[in-house]
Amino acid sequence: MTRRREAGEAVLDAYVALFLLYMFLPLGVMVIAAFNAYPDPSVTQWHGFTLHWFEALARDGRMLAGLRNSIFAALAVVALSLPIGLAAALLLTRLQSRARGFLYALMVSPILTPGIILGISTLVFWRNFGMAGGLLLAVLAQTSFIAAYCMLIFLARLQRFDATQVEAALDLGASQGLVFRRILVPFLAPSMATAAVVAFLQSFENYNTTVFSIGGDWTLVTEIGSRFRFGLTPAVNAIGVVFVVLTVAMAILHVHLGRRRRAHG
């Protein structure tokens, strides 16, 4: 029996290895092509190692402008989604079952809606007010669903909130504003950081919603998307490498900081 069990585990291990290969294969292809001197993205036509594409990327005006736009849009989305998500979560914690169920469904509906439809509906709606697609509409469209993620993050934290703290503070003469500032905000601070990071990344990475609402403007990601139609150079691969390096670096930093914080008590 144990032999059969060991065989089963070996099969599972092999399958996991195969799956990881499946996940890492595109990553590897992407990275290798970024360093290939061949003018089209390729790993089979090896023309020698080069850093040329990173240089080209650094000089690519539209990509750099796209990066700026992406960061601007992501910051704007964070600035909108955080207060909206917080307000929504606070509202839900205070509502009775019926209204609560309905509002909750409405609030999470953008998450269940295909991204392209959020972009389309935003575009169509604002056209009635003479507003064409652009960065602003992209921000609004993204906020419609990213605020829902923020709401869920805050809601999860608020469920662990001891509501008698608010009563205690009110009883000691605090105004609702002071309760909010001194009790609720400090309690929510960690989830605010989480929500901000999630909102920023969601916005920065978004394609489906953005591409329908961005009009003549562009973000880094929509620019990459449009390059697929109008000719590609391995500079796009270089972006991929930068993404991976940045993310892994941040992950390592996060783990490292976490460990240090734990070590310090």
């Binding site: 990553l27 992407m30 394609y207 796009v236 991929g240 991976v244 940045l246």
Partner: peptide, 10 residues
């Protein structure tokens, strides 16, 4: 860590 578009492109 790589954007969806880039993964598809790979």
């Amino acid at each position: 860590a790589m954007n969806e578009l880039l993964r598809v492109y790979a």
